[in-house]
Structures are given as C-alpha cells and as structure tokens.
Design a protein around this nucleic acid. Structure first.
Lengths: 132, 132
DNA sequence: AAATATTTTAGTATTATACTAATATTATGG
DNA sequence: CCATAATATTAGTATAATACTAAAATATTT
C-alpha cells in the first residue's frame, strides 16, 4: 500500500479507529490528541487531502484507504509488541516504544515477522494482531 | 543515556563514525549525506550545540557523548537487523527499513532483545553488534 | 599574491506542528 | 424564532527541521 504519514497523523488514525463506537468530531480529536481545535483542524485537513479520512456533517471517519493504513499500523504494532514482550520488555513500555515506529515499518517486513512468530492470533493485551 | 535526535542527525552521526579512518570535514558530510554545504552547516551546528560532535580546525568528530549515541544506534540497528533477517527479510531491505527506526529505539528494550537473541556477536553482515 | 578550496552568512522556502484570538456556523433550549 | 452555547474555521504568528541559491569570508595551495 505504501503510505507516508507523520506521528500525529498516525495517532489520529488510531484514535479514529479505536473510538469508532460513537461519532467522532473535530473537537473529539482535539481532546484525544490533546491539541487545540485549530491544530486539529490542520491535521484533519491534511488527512483529508491524503484521502485517509473524510467528514460528513462534521463526523469524521476513516476512508477505506485510511482503514487499510490502520490495519497495517496495528499489525506492525502488535507484531512488534509480541517480539518485545517476549524478550521481557514490560508491555506498557513496549507499547510506548512501538508507537514511535509502527507507522514507519514496511508491511512486507512485518508480514515476515508475523509468519516467523507463527501467525499469532492475539497481542499481549489479547487484541487481535491481524485485522480484516 | 536518553538522546533525542532526528533522522538526518542520525545519518550524520553514523557517517562520522563509519568514516573515522580519515579526517571528516563539512564538505565530506555534505557529500556523504548528499546535501549542500549550507544545509550541512546547519546540521553540524545543531549537533555541536547538542554536544554530539565537535570541530577542530574544520575536522569534525564525535564527542564521547556522540560516540555513546552511535553505539546505541548501531546496537539497535544490528539487533533489529538480526530479527528481521531471521524472519526471512532480505538483508538490504532490513537495513533500509531499520535505518528509519534504530535511532528511535529505547536502549533498555534493545538490551532485552539482544539478550533474548543469545547475545550474538555479529550482525548478518558480520559486523559486531555490541560496541565499546 | 593569485587562484582554488572550503566555510559561513544571508535570504528564502516547505512541511509539520502548535498556539491565540477572532469570526463564522450549527445546534439547542426556551 | 431567537438567543445562547457549542463547534468549526480563518487569520495570524511561532518554532524546528530540512533544504536550497547566491554571495561573502576564510583558508589553503600553488
């Protein structure tokens, strides 16, 4: 898929997916990411222009492309999380660590790591590794 | 040690160490990193102000602090490289991948990964994993 | 000293991030 | 339906990292 995003964009994508239970608006993003509305506005504008999110009546959601990026991020995240925790890294530590890099990983490499781990179903928190 | 550097700063640090056989000057850095002299000048100024490099008669070298950062980067790099190549990722691919993240890794996590790999002496290219 | 090499300054640009203050828009309660 | 409150947007500013060109300053070397 080959996407190119920044850390804040990554956090926004993840926040959108993880809060998909209710309608997310600009001010929710601002709250979750702890940024002011105009900063969120800019971020959202950028993600819209990249076709990663879309807005309908102020409600923001991931596009199919955005969703596919989320899947790659989360797969990388949980795969790496497994590797780190297996080595004895505390799982909160691991999570914090990996947030910095999961969106930078190449999917092909992550797939290979995943296979070499025996295609595990869940991450250390019990969440599914592979989505969709 | 807890350092905070950017990708270009990382590349500069690595270039300095890997070319330590001869005196490296600003124009060498510019050549190696494929940037123009004024851009290199800025980069070098930043690294000097962070106490990572120092200049003597135009010859640039890593400070002890800079060297310790290099060691952490390279340990992270080779440890991750081993993990990826073990999973079947081509070693050039792995290297390219890991350059993007090695300088972002927390050293404590890397140490644990390294131990869980059995404290290997060398990376896939035969270079030492652990320096100093 | 002249020519060449190298460094530095000055000025500009872009992208991502972030803020305040003000304005506009939309929704809601009365 | 209108006033208030809630949300979103615009305008303006700022910083850090990256990068460039053109010009000036320094060194170095014939």
């Amino acid at each position: 898929m080959e996407y190119n995003i920044t850390r804040k964009e990554r956090d926004c994508i993840v926040a959108l997916h993880e809060n998909s239970g209710f309608p997310i608006r600009l001010f929710n993003i601002a709250d979750i990411l702890k940024i002011k509305a105009p900063t969120a506005f800019e971020l959202i504008k950028r993600l819209e222009s990249k076709n990663i999110i879309s807005k309908t009546n102020g409600v923001i959601s991931l596009t199919p492309y955005g969703n596919s990026i989320y899947s790659e991020i989360i797969m990388a995240h949980r795969t790496l999380e497994l590797i780190l925790t297996k080595s004895g890294v505390n799982s909160d530590m691991a999570c914090e660590q990996i947030e910095k890099i999961d969106y930078l990983m190449d999917d092909a490499s992550v797939q290979k790591l995943f296979k070499s781990l025996g295609q595990p179903q869940t991450c250390p928190h019990g969440k599914p590794v592979k989505l969709s």
